[in-house]
Amino acid sequence: MSTIFGSSIGRKLLMSLSGLFLVTFLIVHLSINLLLLVPDGGETFNIAANFMALPLIKYGLQPVLFGGFIIHIIYASILTLQNNKARGNAKYASGNNTKDVMWASKNMYVLGITVTAFLVVHIVDFFVPLQITHGAASVTYDGVEMHNTYALVNAALSEAWRVALYVVGSLGLTIHLTHGFWSAFQTLGFSNNIWRKRWTVIGIAFAWIIGLGFAAIAILQFAFYQ
């Protein structure tokens, strides 16, 4: 066991598991975001989003989530550096004409940087005022005081440039997932000639549902909820 993470497959196992963990986070995140579309002035969304203020979530699950991101990013960097070294300094003068290779699969690190850049903006926009500075306004439902998360989101998504940025970020994530999803199962060994095709189809469908879901909610907020 001691040397498993010292091996190439062990390092990839960490990428795979942290990636799948972040996928489950995306599912939870999108599910709650969908409540932004409930036309009740944000009450349903605010109450759902308030679960983030629970001590168990804030002090228990959030550090785990951050750990997931950090492992995924650090190991992506380590693996990319090692792979560049293994590729060697001499480049092919005639380039690479191999067909049938998914573009995303060759650009996962670049796509990851795009997603990370978006993530930083996203954290500054929402996580900081809601979880750290508590600068967001408050609202009370049935005697329970909580952040008016809806108002914060709604105000942020009233600006066209930010909506555009969020759409681009969502698309970057989509393309990252079109390769990442099936690749995670391949790395775990849960794949063969039949399941590889299945995971690829499921992964691409999943990627577009997640990506278009986030993008559509941002656009709808901008267009119809102001």
Partner: peptide
């Protein structure tokens, strides 16, 4: 272990090898 020691890279499942 030998493959890693000899400095070959980490597979990222691009599938170019199979092609």
């Amino acid at each position: 272990a030998k493959m890693d020691e000899l400095g070959f890279g980490n597979c990222t499942n691009t599938g170019a090898c199979e092609v």
